[in-house]
């Protein structure tokens, strides 16, 4: 590439990054403002920061219980998903049938539908199984909704392992579980890690099902945010502070694991 197009590309990248970052920065600033400052026009950039919003939130809501729900849902979903996705991807990668490709595409295509399309059946199922407002419901729904992506990612990672190695372990006397645990998983650990990270992040940020299937007992942090956009009217500053509290843990987590994530999201292209 010659110089000029390269500069333009870099400029576009920066612009995209800023556009992405701007709302976050805005939210962070607003969370330290008073409600009056938060709706001031033109917007204030210099003001005396206050922790009142945060104090108010902790007084009004039990942040810890929401956070705990988020953690439990994310981890349980990720575990359950691995339990299902690893064997599925194993079979698809090493013992593909004539329709394996189609099956993968079909699974992925379910992610192309809007979730709201199945809201009613899922809601009714959850109700009839007495799972409304339980962590189990959210874990199950999140698992099902992330499974296609997880299987796809793991499939891609697994296929980088030479089939001969899997076959060698079979001849050496390993059963399927031993092959998976003693031979395959140690080799694809980075792939497992990336897939798990992505799953945790997707679960943490999942709002649609959280809002529809949970009320109080099972509500995670996305519901916590929503509870501040509540009927008493809009409180921008407080809502911002709640959002900051909700996304801070996952931002930190994402920051720490970003190298692993990038590696995983390039779908095994860079080895």
């Amino acid at each position: 590439m010659s110089k000029a197009p390269l500069r333009i590309a870099v400029a576009i990248a920066w612009l995209a990054a800023l556009l992405n970052f701007f709302p976050l920065a805005w939210m962070l600033l607003a969370s330290f403002k008073t409600e009056v400052q938060a709706i001031a026009s033109p917007p204030l950039f210099f003001f005396l920061p206050t922790l009142d919003n945060y104090r108010g939130i902790f007084a009004q809501q039990d942040y810890a219980s929401f956070a705990l729900n988020s953690i439990v849902i994310s981890l349980a979903t990720t575990l359950l998903m691995l339990l299902l996705a690893v064997p599925a991807a194993f079979a698809m990668a090493f013992y593909p049938g004539a329709k394996t490709r189609d099956l993968l595409l079909w699974m992925l295509s379910t992610k192309m539908l809007p979730a709201v399309g199945v809201l009613v059946p899922i809601y009714l199922l959850a109700r009839d199984l007495h799972l409304l407002d339980t962590l189990a419901a959210l874990v199950i729904v999140n698992t099902l909704s992330n499974l296609p992506i997880a299987i796809w990612m793991l499939f891609t990672f697994f296929r980088e392992t030479p089939k001969d190695i899997i076959e060698a372990s079979r001849i050496d006397g390993a059963n399927v579980l031993q092959t998976i645990f003693l031979v395959l998983l140690p080799l694809v650990l980075p792939g497992i890690a990336s897939t798990s990270l992505l799953s945790i992040i997707l679960c943490w940020n999942e709002a649609f099902w959280s809002l529809n299937l949970s009320a109080h007992n099972a509500a995670p942090l996305t519901a916590f945010i929503a509870s501040f956009s509540a009927p008493q009217g809009l409180f921008w500053a407080r809502l911002s502070a709640a959002s900051v509290l909700a996304i801070a843990p996952i931002l930190v987590f994402g920051w720490i694991s970003q190298r692993q994530l990038v590696r995983g999201l390039t779908f095994g292209a860079v080895k």
Partner: peptide
């Protein structure tokens, strides 16, 4: 009969050693 019960050992062209 599955491979493990046949009591055969195989050497693969690309060796297929366990890398880890």
């Amino acid at each position: 009969i599955p491979p493990k019960a046949r009591d055969v050992a195989m050497v693969f062209q690309n060796y297929a050693l366990y890398p880890h």
